[in-house]
């Protein structure tokens, strides 16, 4: 089976790309493709706890990230430099993955058949 990696590199809600990428990810999981999810750069903002986009009449898809494991997504990597840039620590973000440096992330992307970023 071909493997796929999803790179979230944009902040949530200002644009639709986070939800759109997540929807592709869930569909690939239904096809049982091996999936890696990466939060890189501004994409780490997707993982901030207690988001309330419903105030802006925007659907809250943040909870779906917590369910990634249930969908069979084994590897979730969170870019250490992205966290540092936004002064986030593990206590501020959803506990769904491992913190990784850019070298590890680069290796994973190289080994994957497809990488998708929106």
């Amino acid at each position: 089976m071909k493997s796929v990696c999803f790179i979230f590199n944009k902040p949530p809600y200002g644009q639709g790309s986070g939800k759109e990428l997540l929807d592709i990810c869930l569909m690939c999981s239904a096809f049982e493709m091996p999936i890696t999810v990466i939060f890189q750069g501004d994409g780490v903002l997707q993982l901030i706890e207690n988001q309330q986009p419903d105030i802006l009449n925007i659907k809250n898809y943040s909870k779906t990230f917590k369910a990634l494991k249930l969908y069979g997504v084994e590897t979730v990597l969170i870019d250490a430099a992205g966290l540092e840039k936004h002064q986030l620590v593990t206590e501020n973000i959803l506990n769904i993955g491992e913190i990784a440096n850019s070298k590890i992330i680069q290796n994973v992307i190289q080994k994957t058949d497809f990488s998708i970023m929106l």
Binding site: K2, D23, I24, M27, C28, F31, M33, I116, L118
Partner: peptide, 18 residues
């Protein structure tokens, strides 16, 4: 059609270009 058509196309392709 649905997003499944994208995944199905990926499985049948060597490359996906965005």
């Amino acid at each position: 059609s649905g997003l499944g058509q994208l995944t199905e196309a990926m499985l049948a392709s060597d490359r996906l270009v965005t």
